[in-house]
Amino acid sequence: MDHAKLAALQGPDSIFSGLSLQDWADLAGRAVQVNFIKGKELLSQGEAGDSMLILTEGSARVSMLSPHGREIVLAYAEPGAVLGEIALLDGGERTASVVATSAGVALQLGRNALRDFAASHPDFAWSLMQQLARRLRTADQTIESDRAYASGPRLARYLKRLIRQDVEATHRVELSQTELGNFAGMSREHINRQLRSWEESGVISLEQGRVRVLDTDMLEDISESEG
């Protein structure tokens, strides 16, 4: 396994950001490699969370079911993503499900393995607490911010978040309109009307039901407008 590549894939929000190559070698040595096929459920909402995954190859959809049975897409994971860490750390149930959208490989790390790693790497334990605190602050700010926006600007903000996850910078969102509606909390009909309007304005193009952002500056302006 290429530890340098795995380290480079960790974004600033990863609980493993800042680990040295030697640390990564130690961490990988405590994990089990898992191969999966497209469509495989990697983690299931509501199950006991005694392990976590570090995606090394492939992609996956992260979603949760509302109390009314509606799927809410939270994110699309690419190589480097850390999945299932919340339940692993607090001992509770999984808060979301993860389904592979392509074949791939992940490192599976158990709770005892992570505890032992943290015990032997005190700097990591402190960094982990800081990272979780930053996540909580960001989540609170995002919730409050989104509440203040009408549906159009809110959809634009979700599109911005999705294309920021696009490591190949294609600006193409691999979501159907139904999935995009679930992600943004809007009906498919509402999504369709808004996307058609933006297509006519040259902000996006619709390619086989998928969205490609053509004018990121305009999308930015829409996301910050009052609707």
Rank of each mutant, 00 (worst) to 15 (best):
D2T: 07
H3S: 02
L6G: 06
L9I: 09
L9Q: 05
L9N: 01
G11Q: 11
G11R: 00
D13C: 14
G18M: 07
S20L: 05
W24F: 08
A25L: 08
A25K: 10
A25M: 02
D26R: 08
R30Q: 02
V32H: 12
N35Y: 14
I37Y: 07
K38Q: 08
E41H: 10
S44E: 11
E47K: 05
G49D: 10
L53D: 04
L55K: 03
T56E: 08
A60C: 12
A60F: 01
V62R: 04
V62D: 00
P67V: 03
P67F: 01
H68V: 14
H68M: 01
R70N: 15
E71Q: 14
A77Q: 02
E78I: 11
G80W: 04
V82K: 00
E85V: 07
I86V: 14
L88M: 13
L88Y: 12
R94G: 13
V98M: 01
V99Y: 13
T101N: 08
G104W: 11
V105H: 00
Q108Y: 11
G110C: 00
G110N: 03
G110K: 04
R111I: 01
N112W: 09
A113N: 02
P122M: 04
S127D: 15
M129Y: 08
Q130F: 09
Q131E: 14
L132F: 13
L136Y: 12
E144N: 14
S145L: 08
Y149E: 09
A150T: 10
G152E: 06
A156M: 01
A156Q: 12
L159N: 11
K160G: 11
I163Q: 03
V167N: 09
V167C: 03
V167Y: 13
E168D: 14
A169F: 09
R172H: 09
V173T: 06
E174S: 00
L180D: 04
G181C: 08
G181V: 00
F183R: 10
G185Y: 04
G185K: 01
H190I: 07
I191N: 05
N192P: 08
L195T: 03
E200K: 14
S201Y: 06
S201V: 14
G202F: 05
S205I: 00
E207K: 10
Q208W: 04
G209T: 09
R210Q: 13
V213P: 01
V213R: 00
L214Q: 01
D215Y: 00
T216F: 15
T216L: 11
D217C: 07
M218N: 07
L219H: 03
E224V: 13
E226G: 15
G227W: 02
